[in-house]
Design a protein around this nucleic acid. Structure first.
Length: 737
DNA sequence: CTAGCTGCTGTTTTT
DNA sequence: CAGCAGCTAG
C-alpha cells in the first residue's frame, strides 16, 4: 500500500485517500492530475474498498483513457481488460451494445462520424425540400448536435421563430431517418444512453449498485448532457471524484460547460475542494508567463501554479516576415535542439488551426526532419478507407443507407443520379431502406414490383420503366450478397481483406493514376484489423467498425517513433514536451477572429494559450509572422495580444527586432522567385524545353513544352515520379535542378 | 452515364 | 487554396 502512495504531496495524498464521498479536485496543469486519478483507483482496489469491476473512470480522449489503463496496469497486478475505463462516447457505446434491445437499437447499430452525419443531414433536407441556402447543412448539423448535447430531443426544443422551427423539423426527420437506418451519431450515443438509464429503472439500479466509484477526468470539458448522465448514473450512494481545471476549459465551442464544476459542488454535496497547485512540469519562467496571462480572464475559480524548480530560460520570441520564414526558423531551431541531444519526440510545434500545418510540413519535409502530424485527416477518415468501411458496414447491416450511397456507384457501375432518385422514391414509398428497395427491384429480373411504380412524376418515361438503371443495381445487390456470403464466419482480418480485394476498390485504385497511396492505406486497413484482433476483447466486425468511428486517428500516430510532433493546441492538451513552439501568434489567428464575436470567446482563446504555454517543460518559443498566406491570399497581421500579456522580463526577442515595432508592409513579391533568379535568353520567363527542374511536391522532372507569356506562361513537365503535368509559372514553385 | 471542367464558397478547435 | 455542386462533352 505505502508503495503506491509514496512520493505524493500532501494534497495529492489527501485526494487519493479520501473516504467514500464525492470530491472536486481542482488540478492545475502539470500538477499530477493523472497520477492522482490512477493512484486513487489503485488505492481503492488495493485497500479492498472497491473491485476493478466496481469502478468507472471516464476521460475525454482515447489517449487519456489509454494512458490511465497503462499506468494502472503498471501499478497493480490486475487485468485492466474489462474495466470500465474509457471516453464518454466509448462507455456509452459499450452500454448501448449490451442493452441495445432496451435502448431500441439494432444490435449492430453503426456510428456516424461527422462527415457521415453531414451527408445524412443533407439527404434529409433534400427529401424535405429544405432550402440549403437558407439553412446551411453545417448549421443544421450544429443545431442538432447542440440540442442533443443539451439533452433535448426535437420534441423538446423550444423554437419561437420560423427559422428554428424549420430546423427543429429537420432535426426530427433526421432522427427518424437515423433510427430507420439503425445508425447513431456521436451525440446520440450519449443521449440514447442517458435515456436508457432514465427509462429503465432496473438497469439504472443495476449500474448504480455496481459502480460505487466514478472518476471523471477533465471535468471542465463536460457538457450539459454528460453532466446529467453522470448524475443519473451516480445516484445518491456513489462517490464521484471529479478532476478538472477551469483554466483549461477549451471546448466551450462544442457545448462544454465549465460551470458544471460549480454545479457539481452543489449537486453532489462536495464537502471540500482540493486544489493541486504545485507544478512538476515546467520551469519557473514558463509558469510565470502562464499565470500572468490567465489573470486577464475574469471568470475563474482562482488558482496559482508554483514550482520548486528554478526559473530556467527566458521564453524566446521570434518575429518572422512571412509564414515561410517562421517555418524556416522552426526548422533551424529544431535542428539545433536535436544537435544538443533533445529527442525529436520531445519537441512539439503547436498551432491554432490545422490549416497552418501545411507550411510547416513543407519546410520540415524539405529539411529531411521526421515529423508526425496529429489530427488533420485521420486514417479512418480517408476516402478510400471510408469506402472500404462502407462495404464492411453493408455486410454487417445492409439497411445502412449512408454506407450504401457511398459505394453503390463506387467503383462506377452505371448507377447515376437518375436511378438513385428512383431507388430513393421506392424506398420512401415502401417505408424501407434503400437496400430493401434495391433487392425488390433486382429480385424479379427488372420489373418494378407492386406499389413501387406509381410515383413517377414524368409520364414520358413510363414507356420504358427504368430499364437502364436495372443493369447496375442488380449487379450491386449481387456483389454485396456474394461478399456477405463469402465472408460469413471468417475471422475479422480475412473479412476485411476479402472486402478490399473483391469489392472492386483495389482494382479501381490500381488503375488510378495517383492511387498508390490509397492502395497502401487499404493494405494498412487490413493490418489495422489484425492489430485490432490482438488488442480488443470483442474482435467482431461491428466492434471493429465502432472502433473505426470512435478512434478515427489512432493509426497515424505510431507511438514512440523519433519524430517531431505537430498538432493543434487542442490536441496538445494533457501532453508535455521538453521544447514547445507556439506558432502563428497573430491577431485573428490566435486569438482566432471567429472568437471575437462569440460570448466568452476571447477568454476561451486565452485559456487555449494557457494550455499551450503549460505544455512546455524547459524550452518555449513564441513565434509569429507579419504576413501569411491564408485562404489563397496574403494577409498582414499584427502580433497577438497574448504576447503583450506576458511580462517582458520573461521574454527574449531573438531576432533583435524591437518588440511591437510598427508592422512593415512588405513590397509585393516578384511573381515567381525562380523566374527572377534564373535568366536564360531563350524565353522571356527564363525556362526552356529540355531543362531539368524540381518541384516541391512532384519532385524532379524535365520541361517538355512551353506556352503563353507573362502571367499566363505555362510549362509542361515530365516528372520522374508524378507523370506529365502542366504548371502555371506564376504559381508553381519550380526550381532549376 | 461518366469524367472532367469551371466557378463558387467557406473557412477553429474534436469525441 | 481546397472541396464541392453543377454543367458539358463524349
Amino acid at each position: 500500500m505505502s508503495s503506491i502512495l509514496s512520493g505524493l504531496n500532501p494534497e495529492q495524498l489527501e485526494a487519493v485517500s479520501l473516504p467514500h464521498q464525492s470530491a472536486l479536485i481542482l488540478a492545475g496543469a502539470g500538477s499530477g492530475k493523472t497520477r492522482v486519478l490512477t493512484t486513487r483507483i489503485a488505492y481503492l482496489i488495493q485497500s479492498g474498498q472497491a473491485s476493478p469491476h466496481g469502478v468507472l473512470a471516464v476521460t475525454f480522449t482515447n489517449k487519456a483513457a489509454k494512458e490511465m489503463i497503462a499506468r494502472l496496469s503498471a501499478m497493480l497486478p490486475i487485468n485492466t481488460r474489462g474495466m470500465w475505463i474509457g471516453t464518454f462516447h466509448g462507455l456509452c457505446n459499450r452500454m448501448l451494445r449490451l442493452h441495445h434491445r432496451d435502448a431500441g437499437l439494432p444490435q449492430l447499430f453503426q456510428i456516424l462520424d461527422v462527415q457521415d452525419q453531414l451527408s445524412l443531414v443533407k439527404r434529409v433536407m433534400k427529401a424535405m425540400g429544405v432550402d440549403g441556402e437558407k439553412f446551411p447543412p453545417r448549421q443544421v448539423q450544429w443545431f442538432i448536435n447542440g440540442n442533443k448535447e443539451a439533452g433535448l430531443r426535437a420534441s423538446k426544443v423550444e423554437a419561437y421563430d420560423d427559422f428554428s422551427r424549420r430546423m427543429t423539423e429537420v432535426y426530427a426527420a433526421y432522427d427518424e431517418q437515423c433510427s430507420r437506418e439503425g445508425v447513431v451519431d456521436f451525440a446520440e450515443l450519449l443521449l440514447r444512453c442517458f435515456e436508457l438509464l432514465q427509462a429503465n429503472e432496473i438497469l439504472r439500479d443495476h449500474y448504480r449498485e455496481r459502480f460505487a466509484h466514478i472518476l471523471v477526468d477533465e471535468f471542465q470539458d463536460t457538457n450539459r448532457l454528460q453532466y446529467l448522465w453522470l448524475r443519473l448514473l451516480a445516484g445518491n450512494r456513489c462517490a464521484v471524484m471529479a478532476v478538472g481545471d477551469d483554466d483549461q476549459s477549451i471546448y466551450g465551442f462544442r457545448g462544454a460547460h465549465s460551470a458544471n464544476m460549480q454545479s457539481f459542488e452543489r449537486d453532489f454535496g462536495v464537502a471540500k475542494v482540493i486544489k493541486l497547485e504545485q507544478n512538476y512540469r515546467s520551469h519557473g519562467n514558463i509558469l510565470d508567463a502562464a499565470n500572468h496571462l490567465i489573470r486577464n480572464n475574469r471568470t475563474r475559480l482562482g488558482k496559482n501554479l508554483w514550482t520548486a524548480e528554478s526559473h530556467g530560460e527566458p521564453l524566446r520570441v521570434f518575429q518572422a516576415p512571412t509564414d515561410l520564414d517562421e517555418a524556416a526558423y522552426v526548422v533551424d531551431e529544431v535542428k539545433a535542439l536535436s544537435r544538443e541531444g533533445v529527442a525529436l519526440s520531445e519537441i512539439a510545434v503547436l498551432y491554432r488551426s490545422n490549416a497552418q500545418s501545411r507550411v510547416l510540413e513543407h519546410a520540415l519535409f524539405n529539411a529531411g526532419l521526421p515529423y508526425r502530424v496529429y489530427g488533420g485527416l485521420r486514417f479512418f477518415e480517408r476516402q478510400e478507407i471510408k469506402h472500404a468501411l462502407a462495404y464492411l458496414r453493408l455486410a454487417a447491416n445492409p439497411d445502412d443507407d449512408n454506407a450504401l450511397l457511398r459505394v453503390i456507384n463506387f467503383p462506377a457501375r452505371g448507377i447515376g443520379a437518375r436511378s438513385l432518385e428512383q431507388l430513393q422514391e421506392s424506398a420512401k414509398a415502401a417505408g424501407g431502406s434503400l437496400w430493401q428497395a434495391a433487392c425488390e427491384r433486382s429480385a424479379v429480373g427488372g420489373q418494378p414490383v407492386g406499389r413501387a411504380l406509381p410515383v413517377d412524376p414524368r409520364p414520358a418515361t413510363t414507356g420504358r420503366p427504368a430499364s437502364s438503371p436495372l443493369k447496375g443495381i442488380p449487379a450491386f445487390v449481387a456483389l454485396i450478397e456474394s461478399l456477405r456470403a463469402a465472408t460469413q464466419g471468417l475471422p475479422l482480418p480475412e473479412i476485411v481483406e476479402h472486402m478490399v480485394e473483391h469489392s472492386g476498390l483495389k482494382q479501381h485504385y490500381q488503375s488510378e493514376r495517383e492511387g498508390a497511396d490509397r492502395l497502401e492505406n487499404l493494405n494498412e486497413l487490413v493490418n489495422a484489423a489484425v492489430g485490432f484482433v490482438h488488442e480488443a476483447e470483442d474482435d467482431s466486425l461491428p466492434a471493429f467498425l465502432a472502433h473505426a468511428a470512435l478512434e478515427a486517428g489512432e493509426h497515424q500516430a505510431e507511438e514512440g517513433a523519433q519524430a517531431l510532433q505537430l498538432m493543434t493546441v487542442h490536441s496538445a492538451k494533457g501532453l508535455e514536451f521538453h521544447g514547445v513552439f507556439i506558432t502563428g501568434l497573430e491577431e485573428g489567428l490566435f486569438p482566432h477572429e471567429q472568437s471575437f464575436n462569440q460570448d466568452g470567446g476571447l477568454e476561451e482563446e486565452r485559456r487555449l494559450m494557457y494550455v499551450a504555454l503549460t505544455r512546455s517543460k524547459r524550452r518555449l518559443y513564441l513565434t509569429f509572422a507579419q504576413s501569411r498566406m491564408l485562404h489563397g491570399q496574403t494577409r498582414y497581421n499584427v502580433s497577438s495580444r497574448f504576447l503583450e500579456e506576458i511580462p517582458e522580463r520573461l521574454m527574449k526577442w531573438v531576432n533583435l527586432t524591437a518588440p511591437f515595432a510598427p508592422v512593415l508592409v512588405p513590397e509585393p513579391k516578384p511573381k515567381s522567385k525562380s523566374a527572377v533568379s534564373f535568366t536564360v535568353p531563350k524565353a522571356s520567363h527564363g525556362w526552356q524545353v529540355g531543362q531539368s527542374v524540381t518541384h516541391p511536391k512532384f519532385g524532379s522532372g524535365v520541361i517538355v513544352n512551353c506556352e503563353g507569356h507573362g502571367p499566363d506562361a505555362r510549362v509542361q513537365v515530365r516528372f520522374t515520379r508524378a507523370g506529365v503535368k502542366w504548371l502555371a509559372l506564376e504559381y508553381a514553385r519550380l526550381t532549376p535542378a
